[in-house]
Amino acid sequence: MTLDPPSTVSTTSRRGTATAATRVLGVLTIVMIGWLGVFGLLLSPADRDQGDAVRIMYVHVPSVWLAYLAFIVTALASAVHLFGKSHSMQADRVAGASAEIGVVFMAVTLVTGMLWGRITWGVYWQWDARLTTTALLFISYIGYLAVRGLEGSRSQRARRSAIVGLLAVLEVPLVHWSVRLWRSLHQEATVLGTDLDVSLDGLMLFSLFVGVVAFTLLFLWLLLHRSRVLTMIDLSAETGLDAALAQRRAEGGVTA
């Protein structure tokens, strides 16, 4: 599946960034999100201590998984751009698109976590290790997006942001293991802990699995579309530059 926009796409095309493959992926994503709604809201049981508040988990955990995944994809694409022989600009666009998606879903993680915290802990926020490092990760990737927007040539910006993307991803394991490294109000990992012992009711675990699959498909769908949009923006900028040069040459009586 290519990340380039469909070959028939031009600035005047109405087809947008969709292909047959992304349409199939989109339908699969919608179906899985529908299943997530059915399992998360109807079929999975309430928790003995938390009651129905546990259902927030089916959005909170998949969204943080998606954010981690997005930031790792950003780092891998950044490495391809930085260390690859061709310094692929397509890899840079994938890195940027993935970081944008990651930031959005990290925001979802923070908001759902605050709501869940208010219900179970009794407070929206505390500066414990997990919440603090998560906030730091969120801010770091906002910084990454800011770096992408700095002045400079297209290749300069791509190189700079690739370096930041490779450094910022080091925070991901720090956030994940913060509940083991320090004493935290946040619970320890239920699924991806060190002992691999899953302390989760069977139907809750399955609902969580449906959520992770749904959000992973959503990530792929968003990544493909956003990467293609960024490609089209770059093409548009180049087309605009060519047009400006042609106009300038015409003014000076020079034939291209």
């Binding site: 309430a46 928790d47 003995r48 938390q50 802990w121 407070v123 239920t190 989760l200």
Partner: peptide, 16 residues
């Protein structure tokens, strides 16, 4: 002056 409930990582169905 403040109590925070520290939920564990265990989840058990309410009707189980």
């Amino acid at each position: 002056d403040r109590v925070e409930v520290k939920h564990s990582e265990d989840y058990v169905a309410v009707n189980d």
